[in-house]
């Protein structure tokens, strides 16, 4: 099934300049988001997942800035627009935020303001992206709350976020992201702050909404279980680069990058023998300012090639193709 590509990211680079030096948070990231499909992005903390999400919306805070690459909305159509070329404060960019691309946050408590009612915050987004009257916006907000499965939405509209449970709050967050009727949704660890049963409900909700609205979903997580549940394709990130890309089944069956294999080994298994030590990845993610030479993963890699991996960087994966940015994967292919 060939789907319309909604967003193409090519060679995206983001740097943070500080007194200690330049940190390359993203270093040539490329991928596509397709209508009706879910791209899962996994990686440890600090690998650049959230920066990717923020760059797409042009919301990278200073001292970070995009130093290269393109973010193409509707690539290949007459309406194609490069978001990198837009002024972050421009009217066009603000129309994209919320109107074309919705953002769902990790922390439903802190992502909503405690000073305004749920309705106020949702209606604001509705009004921002449509010419609706306040009455129409209110009706639309009620409809949105119903859509995300909040019982008695007419009453909930006048609640404050702190009066709601974590799961309901995240539903409100989703409703807010959908208020501008976006066709692309970025969910940044949407279930990390929730308990397991609520997680499952929220994931089911996201999947249902995506299927109904043909949304291109970019799902950022560090949870392999969420990936298995939700994603069509998976990109594995390490230190600001995509080191592995594959359809989800292929990734779990035959992971090509040693880092991907290590991540999968680190998932606790219910079948493991009791009291067996949990598998971990040795070492820690290096500080992005102290990127190792050659392949950034080589100091932690159990399969590193003597001499080669420390000196040469493996080539990046061509966008849209399954593969791994690793000399070992090359040898196999």
């Amino acid at each position: 099934m060939v789907e319309r590509t909604s967003l193409s990211i090519r060679d995206l680079a983001v740097q943070f300049e500080s007194e200690q030096g330049v940190v390359r948070a993203l270093d040539g990231v490329s991928f596509d988001l397709q209508a009706g499909r879910t791209l899962g992005i996994v990686g440890e903390s600090g690998c650049g997942k959230s920066v990717t999400a923020r760059s797409i919306l042009r919301l990278v805070d200073r001292p970070g800035r995009i130093t290269g690459g393109r973010i193409l909305l509707d690539p290949g159509t007459p309406a194609q627009a490069d978001l990198v070329a837009l002024n972050p404060d421009s009217r066009q960019m603000r129309a994209v935020r919320g109107g074309r691309i919705g953002l769902i946050f990790q922390e439903p408590m802190t992502a909503l303001s405690v000073h305004y009612t749920v309705g106020n915050q949702i209606m604001e987004a509705v009004l921002q992206h449509s010419g609706a009257s306040p009455q129409e916006a209110r009706a639309r907000a009620i409809e949105l709350l119903r859509e995300v499965g909040i019982p008695r939405p007419e009453l909930r509209l006048d609640s404050y976020p702190f009066e709601l449970s974590g799961g309901l709050r995240q539903r409100v967050g989703i409703a807010m992201a959908l208020a501008g009727d976006p066709d692309i949704v970025i969910a940044d660890e949407p279930t990390t702050a929730l308990d397991v049963t609520t997680q499952a409900q929220i994931l089911a909700l996201l999947r249902g909404l995506q299927e109904r609205k043909r949304i291109a979903l970019m799902l950022i997580t560090h949870d392999m279980g969420v990936i298995a549940e939700m994603a069509d394709d998976v990109a594995v990130m390490y230190l600001g680069r995509i080191v592995g890309f594959a359809p989800v089944m292929e990734l779990f069956k035959a992971p090509r990058h040693p880092y991907t294999r290590a991540l999968l080994r680190a998932v606790p298994s219910i079948l493991a023998a009791p009291r067996q030590r949990l598998s971990t990845i040795g070492g820690a993610v290096p500080h992005p300012g102290l990127r190792p030479t050659g392949c950034a993963f080589h100091p932690r890699c159990t399969e590193a090639l003597e001499g080669r991996c420390a000196r040469e960087a493996p080539p990046p994966i061509p966008p849209g193709q399954a593969g791994a940015s690793c000399f070992l994967a090359e040898a196999v292919a």
């Binding site: 919306l57 919320g98 953002l103 946050f105 990790q106 807010m176 501008g180």
Partner: peptide, 13 residues
């Protein structure tokens, strides 16, 4: 705080 990003992500000025 994250809610500021939320507000920006809605497209507010």
């Amino acid at each position: 705080k994250p809610y500021v990003v939320t507000a920006r992500a809605k497209g507010l000025t």
